[in-house]
Amino acid sequence: MLNPQLTSLIVTTEGLKSIKDILNKLRDETKARYILLVEKSGQMITSVGEESPFSMPLSALIAGAFASTREIAKLLGETEFNVMFQQGKTRNIYISALKTQDLLTVVFDESAMLGIVKLKTKQVTEPLSDEIASMLYKK
């Protein structure tokens, strides 16, 4: 029998469904290509939208990049930067930290508007954080 006491996050079928519902709604509203939910250690919890063959290395790099900006924030006297935005020619990525320190990552192109992505992402950080927090094992 698996021992949940030594783990930090146990993703249940019901929990995952609630999370995916939130992410799918966010994707519809923002017209994002896909959305990744990345655990702070760099592992992907789930994704919606287009399947990326690179979701695993992408998750590791996103967690690394975000962790790095968090340290930069500290060196600048900020508690943290809670969002990060990278703009490309055709693809953009918007990363927002949840209360649980996990990362909501929205990948979008020119058919989406940055303002909407920002607004809608902000609106779901609270319910998403609550969903994840309810699956976290507390010692």
Partner: peptide, 12 residues
């Protein structure tokens, strides 16, 4: 800090 996913039956 393993991630145990009961839905996809995976341990990361």
């Amino acid at each position: 800090m393993a991630l145990i996913n009961y839905s996809s039956r995976e341990i990361h």
